[in-house]
Design a protein around this nucleic acid. Structure first.
Length: 226
DNA sequence: GCGACAG
DNA sequence: ATCTTGTCGC
């Protein structure tokens, strides 16, 4: 990517990079390790902590983690998340001693006005399969049934860009969309697999928790290889 | 034109 | 995203 592009050029960059998104999983794709990515922000400052936590998909055990502290150099603009979080997320990924099979991002992937949300962005840049799991949709959506596993397609301009997925009975749905090198069905199945008990996947819960602990100073960055 | 708007 | 008080449930 670039070194802090201007807001207006960021939009153009997304339109170009969107062509690089691959909507299918690699041959014989059988992910074993999923990495949860999240960024924690310090109130009233530009300081932030990006966290990456690797989880064994079969057991949900945490097998590796890393963080990267930085200063936000791009403003929060809905639709331009990648430019704000990638600069911090990429270094965190590099610090992992494990290469995850798939990245689970906190935000949208294809379910984005220009079909290039954070998950697509980090997927294309790293070349790794990725999926986006947002807590909130960018636009309107049809509520899925009340049971875990129920879902409704997310439609934007006549295109199916993702799914509103119920990960637990009677809890608000999450918004799943592909990021890169994966398909919607596989992404949906993986999100359910990673969310056996809570609304959000264990991957994003773990990354969110680690980021907050480091921000608060309760966990030293050296404890997770900084 | 106006409102809505991932984290 | 983060702040903030209380409440419900395991």
């Amino acid at each position: 990517m670039d070194h802090t592009p201007a807001v207006d050029e960021a939009v153009q960059l997304q339109l170009e990079l969107a062509h690089l998104v691959e909507p299918n999983a690699p041959e014989g794709f059988a992910p074993k390790i999923a990495a949860g990515l999240d960024v924690a922000y310090e109130p009233g400052s530009d300081r932030l902590v990006a966290a990456a936590v690797c989880v064994d998909i079969a057991t949900l055990a945490i097998v590796d983690s890393a963080v990267h502290e930085a200063v936000a150099d791009f403003p929060y603009v809905p639709g331009l998340f990648g430019f704000r979080e990638l600069p911090a997320l990429l270094p965190a990924l590099d610090k992992l001693s494990t290469t995850p099979d798939i990245l689970v991002c906190d935000g949208q992937g294809l379910a984005h006005p220009r079909r290039f949300g954070l998950a697509c962005h980090i997927g294309v840049v790293t070349g790794l399969p990725s999926i986006g799991v947002g807590k909130q949709a960018l636009g309107r959506y049809e509520p899925p049934g009340p049971t875990r596993g129920d879902w409704k397609p997310l439609v934007d301009n006549g295109e199916i860009v993702g799914r509103a997925l119920r990960t637990q009975d009677d809890v608000k749905p999450v918004f799943v969309s592909i990021g890169h090198r994966i398909d919607l069905d596989t992404a949906t199945g993986l999100v359910l697999k990673l969310s056996p008990r809570y609304r959000l996947p264990e991957t994003t819960r773990a990354a969110d928790h680690l980021g907050r602990e480091v921000l608060a100073g309760r966990v030293g960055v050296q404890d997770v290889r900084d």
